[in-house]
C-alpha cells in the first residue's frame, strides 16, 4: 500500500521536477546532462569491468576447461561412478536439510512473530549466527556435539546423518528470514474472519496463513538447497569424505583437482554451476509469482 501511494506521488512529482529543470538556463542544463552521461558511463563501465574480471571470466574459464577435451571426455568425467555417487548424495542430503528447515524455519518464524517471551530479541539475533560464523567452525562444533566425544552420547560422525546435521546448521536462517517479514505484514483480520466463520486452527493455517507465506517458504527453501549443494566447510570435517559413502560433490571436486585432474573436477563443477543457475531462475520465478498482483 505504501509503495503504491509512493509511486503515484512520484509520477505526480515528475512533471514538476522537469518543469523546474526546463526553467533553468539552457547552458547549465546541457552541462548537467553531459556530466551526468559521463557519470553513468563511468559507473556502468566499472560495473561491467568488475563483474567481468571477478565473476564472468573465471566462470567462462571453468566451462571452457570442462569442454576443451571434447564432449565424450566431459560425459566420461560426469558419469564416473564416484562422481555420480557424490552427486546423488549431495542432492539427497541437500533436499532433506532444506525440507526439514522449511518446517522448523516456518515454526521458528511464527514463534518469533506471533509469540511473546523473554529474550525474544536474543533468539531473533541468534538465527543469523550461521550466516556470520565461518562454516569450518560450524562443522567443528557440530562434530563435537554429535561426534565420538558427544556429551549427548549420540555418535553419528562420518555418516550421512552427520552431513545432514551440519547442513541444518548452516541453512537454518534462510526460511526463517524469508517467512518472518511476510508474517509480520500478514493481516490478522483474515485469520479472525476465518475463525469466526467456524474454521479450526489447522484449517486457518492451511487455508489462510499458508497460501500467504508459501512464496516465502519456497524461495527460502530454494536458497537453502543451493547453499547445501555447494557447502564444503561445514561438511569436510564431519563427513569423513569416504568415496561412495559420505563424499559430497564439493569435496569430490576439491580432491579431484588436488589429485591433478582439474578437467574431471571441472566437469562436475559445471553440473553444480548449472544447478546454481537453475536455483536463481527458480527464485526469480517465485518472486515474480508472489508479486504478480502488485503490478496490476
Amino acid at each position: 500500500m505504501g509503495a503504491s501511494s509512493r509511486s503515484k506521488r512520484l509520477s505526480e512529482d515528475r512533471p514538476l521536477a522537469s518543469t523546474g529543470l526546463a526553467l533553468r538556463p539552457r547552458r547549465s542544463r546541457s552541462v548537467l546532462h553531459s556530466s551526468e552521461r559521463a557519470a553513468t558511463a563511468l559507473s556502468l563501465g566499472f560495473v561491467t569491468a568488475f563483474l567481468t574480471v571477478i565473476v564472468a571470466l573465471p566462470i567462462a574459464a571453468l566451462i571452457w576447461a570442462s569442454k576443451k577435451r571434447g564432449g565424450s571426455d566431459f560425459w566420461q568425467a560426469i558419469s564416473n561412478p564416484e562422481a555420480v555417487a557424490a552427486l546423488k548424495l549431495t542432492i539427497t542430503v541437500a533436499v532433506i536439510a532444506a525440507l526439514v528447515n522449511a518446517v522448523f524455519g516456518t515454526i521458528i518464524a511464527w514463534v518469533l512473530v506471533r509469540d511473546e517471551f523473554r529474550g525474544k530479541s536474543i533468539v531473533n539475533a541468534l538465527i543469523d549466527l550461521p550466516f556470520a560464523l565461518p562454516t569450518i567452525v560450524a562443522g567443528l562444533v557440530v562434530l563435537a556435539f554429535y561426534g565420538t566425544s558427544s556429551p549427548l552420547g549420540i555418535h553419528v560422525a562420518f555418516t550421512r546423518t552427520a552431513i545432514v546435521l551440519a547442513l541444518l546448521f548452516v541453512t537454518l536462517p534462510f526460511v526463517v528470514r524469508t517467512v518472518q517479514p511476510v508474517l509480520i505484514e500478514l493481516d490478522k483480520d483474515m485469520e479472525e474472519a476465518a475463525r469466526s466463520l467456524g474454521a479450526d486452527e489447522f484449517t486457518v493455517f492451511r487455508r489462510v496463513v499458508l497460501p500467504n507465506i508459501l512464496p516465502g517458504i519456497l524461495s527460502g527453501v530454494t536458497m537453502a538447497f543451493a547453499r547445501a549443494i555447494g557447502e564444503i566447510g561445514a561438511i569436510v570435517l564431519i563427513s569423513g569424505n569416504l568415496p561412495y559413502k559420505t563424499e559430497v560433490s564439493s569435496v569430490y571436486i576439491f580432491l579431484r583437482n588436488q589429485g591433478g585432474d582439474p578437467a574431471g573436477a571441472s566437469a562436475v563443477a559445471v553440473v553444480l554451476l548449472s544447478i546454481s543457475f537453475a536455483v536463481l531462475l527458480a527464485v526469480g520465478g517465485v518472486r515474480r509469482f508472489a508479486t504478480r498482483f502488485e503490478r496490476a
Partner: peptide
C-alpha cells in the same frame, strides 16, 4: 548483471576456487 551479482550466493565456493584455478593456472 543481476544474475552475476546473485550467482555467488547460489554457487559452491569450491566451484569458485576451481574456476580461478583454471583461469590463472
Amino acid at each position: 548483471v543481476n544474475a552475476f551479482v546473485d550467482l555467488p550466493l547460489a554457487l559452491s565456493p569450491v566451484v569458485v576456487g576451481l574456476a580461478l584455478f583454471l583461469l590463472y593456472g
